[in-house]
Simulated scan of single mutants.
Amino acid sequence: MQPQTVPPLDTDRMLASGRRTLTIEAQALHALAERLDPTFVDAVRTILGARGRVIVTGVGKSGHIGRKIAATLASTGTPAYFVHAAEAAHGDLGMITPEDVVVAISYSGASDEVLMILPAIKRQGAALIALTGRPDSPLARQSDVHLDVSVREEACPHNIAPTASTTAALAMGDALAIALLEARGFGPEDFARSHPGGALGRKLLTRVADVMRPRPDVPTAPPDVPLTEALLIMSRGGMGMVAAIDADDRPLGIFTDGDLRRAIEQGADLRTETLARRMNPSPKTISPEALAAEAARRMEDARISQMLVVDEGRLVGALHMHDLMRAKVL
Rank of each mutant, 00 (worst) to 15 (best):
E265V: 12
D257Y: 08
A161V: 15
E289R: 14
A155F: 07
A295S: 09
R45Y: 00
D301E: 15
H84W: 05
L315R: 08
A268E: 14
S305P: 01
R303W: 06
R202I: 10
R326N: 12
P138K: 05
I121W: 05
S111N: 08
M325T: 13
H322G: 06
P3D: 09
A168H: 07
G238H: 10
I286H: 03
D42W: 01
L15A: 13
V310S: 11
A70N: 07
T23V: 06
S75T: 08
I286F: 02
D210E: 12
L270K: 05
H322R: 11
D42K: 14
L275G: 10
L330C: 10
D92R: 10
L48E: 12
I160A: 13
M321T: 12
I129Q: 02
M95K: 10
L180V: 03
T46M: 13
I47G: 02
L308K: 11
G94R: 01
V101E: 10
S17V: 10
V310M: 10
A295L: 06
D190C: 07
M172T: 08
P98E: 08
G317D: 07
L231I: 12
T11W: 09
T97N: 01
P281F: 11
P7N: 13
K61C: 06
A33T: 13
A302S: 14
T166G: 00
P98K: 09
I65Y: 00
G197M: 06
P138V: 03
I264D: 04
P135H: 12
R141G: 00
P223S: 14
